[in-house]
Nucleic acid binder design. Structure first.
Lengths: 353, 353
DNA sequence: TTGTAAGCGTTATCAT
DNA sequence: ATGATAACGCTTACAA
């Protein structure tokens, strides 16, 4: 394996000079010398040891991404965004599947720490309450104190600064959309209490209803599953017939659609059902679901960009300096009638601290 | 950041001794000394530099996985299998999205090579014909000569040994299944010619038909898309009505189903349609599609296991020694009639060279 | 413009 | 059972 030493020898220069030609594009080196080194490197198929380089520069050029499960498109799309942004900047991405297990997360954080990854990105909200969380936070705190960067993306995680859409604002928008369609009796199917984003969505729903002078009383909690949505909708429809149901995620919305049909209602003629997340399953449903679009790919890109910015300026992203990023969330509206165009509204994307 | 030096000092021993305690579990070290080192390491939160270690041991503990697009569940499931197996063995996985672009692949191979990853796993078949392929092969050849391991998984790639199901055998099985159902006029919708596995599937179809004394004349080529399957099926149905259609992938099979319905045929009563790949879209279709099950997760695991075995014995997986692995492919049969159980048949999984 | 030499944090080879 | 010390391949003051 040809090293820089070989290149230097073949070019008849010192290792230092070779290094300068190979790395610092701007460093003053005689044109002839530069040429010789470049030729030598090519001839020898010089492959710089990123390991050795990382050891001395204290920059590995590797980013660790922790996802629940990369097979889940939700995580995959975000991870892909991270990877795209990473590649553009010359970084590599290590993907870790944690299955949301805090113990696994902790072990990964330790290992990635050993590899001196430049940053950690936790994708998706954490499941709160687990006692293992404490250990994870500790390990993470140590890693961060040692200079490692870490952010959460699309969900809260270990109290890290988070790159996320504003779930409350997005939910707010969706309610306004329903209101503009003439709906007044709007039901809400929330998620489980242990997921922070679920609470934010519900808060947005309530705020929008109250702002319109309506009581947000028709709310039931689901568990993010199709079955949970089905059951929750059944309850909502039994009690006091809403004309629209807003589910905190698409899966539950789909369950609600079927529950409505089971109850003899036509969707969307008799009942409007909207979701959150614009997952592929929602788009393929018939009729397609109106849903809050989460720009997952862009969120991944934004997370990586935040890391990049911090890496370059050596500013910890925890600092207020880098709180805002640009990508918007949109409302993805299924065509309710022929010829109507999908509607889009902007919702700001923030870095929460 | 506490290094081994700090641990050694705090424990009052030499770096060598500290290293021995920390790594070689079996090396003879006085119990008391061992204890002191362990305590020191814990107190200092010693984080061994995997980089430094990799530099000297020439083993990075990192595996590079190249996929077309990690958002595609096809790739994601295989990559997840790789990651699962890697984690068990203490390896980390760098995931690279190539979008099947040979130029991107080449750059990734170079970069991963610089990072001295222990092995490369190319997931999914390559698109042949591109001129960039030559360069890729060259770069790869150099990397391999330098000791890097490389295999292909679920498709051929750069002539590398491949961990894959036997596509021809699987297709053969599927045809036999259709024959056992009484079908004689069986149509086949192939994939594009530039994908090697497509050719293998068609070969399996032909062989099975001929073995049954039937002429495999009803074959049309598609392009792996829903639309392609639709059009191909239209042609098949127009010419000479088959009672069953076997598509080289699920997407095309779905297109065929709709084409049949458009032609006034009931599926599966009037026409049986089967696919290949048991992708989620096939399983969610109504009625669910009978399809050849590709054990994607297991393929990923098998690929990683092959790498692991070679890594431990320092045997290049190209050698005939490690050609066979165990996981089987199965035929996933949708329930055609009530109460009938999904049927499973085994198809061997081989490492092709 | 170029070179010398001191690390970066480990492991590994000899000694003792 | 334990310890110097030389690599590993590179970057980077500091000189010249």
């Amino acid at each position: 394996m040809a090293g820089i030493k070989d290149v230097a020898r073949k070019a008849g220069v010192s290792i230092t000079t070779a290094s300068r030609v190979l790395n610092h594009v701007d460093y003053p080196v005689a044109a002839a010398t530069r040429r010789r080194v470049e030729v030598a490197a090519r001839d020898l198929r010089y492959s710089p040891s990123a390991l050795a380089r990382a050891l001395v520069t204290r920059r590995s050029g590797i980013i660790g991404v922790l996802v629940g499960d990369m097979v889940d498109p939700y995580f995959a799309e975000i991870a892909r965004g991270v990877e795209d942004a990473a590649r553009r900047a010359g970084y590599l991405v290590i993907v870790c599947n944690t299955d949301r297990d805090p113990a696994v997360e902790r072990r990964y954080v330790e290992t990635l720490s050993d590899y001196r990854v430049d940053a950690l990105i936790f994708v998706g909200g954490e499941r709160v309450g687990a006692s293992e969380r404490r250990k994870l936070k500790q390990v993470l705190a140590v890693a961060i104190k040692r200079g490692m960067l870490a952010v959460a993306c699309a969900g809260e995680h270990a109290g890290l600064p988070a790159i996320d859409i504003d779930h409350a604002a997005a939910a707010h928008q969706m309610v306004e959309h329903l209101l503009s369609l003439g709906h007044r009796r709007i039901g809400f199917i929330g998620g489980t209490a242990d997921v922070s984003t679920a609470g934010q969505r519900k808060a947005g729903f309530r705020a929008a209803m109250l702002a319109a002078g309506l009581e947000p009383t028709l709310t039931v909690n689901g568990d993010f599953t199709y079955a949970g949505g089905f059951e929750a909708a059944r309850r909502l429809l039994a009690s006091d017939g809403p004309t629209a149901i807003f589910a905190a995620n698409d899966e539950m919305a789909l369950g609600a659609v079927d529950a409505a049909r089971m109850a003899g209602l036509r969707v969307p003629e008799d009942l409007s059902v909207v979701g959150f997340g614009n997952t592929s399953v929602a788009l393929r449903a018939r009729p397609a679901l109106t849903t809050v679009s989460m720009p997952r790919h862009e969120l991944g890109v934004a997370a990586m960009d935040a890391i990049l910015a911090a890496l370059e300026s050596r500013v910890n992203p925890v600092e207020p300096a880098s709180r805002r990023v640009s990508s918007p969330s949109t409302l993805w509206c299924a065509r309710r009638r022929r010829h109507s165009r999908p509607e889009k509204r902007r919702v700001s994307l923030d870095v929460h601290n």
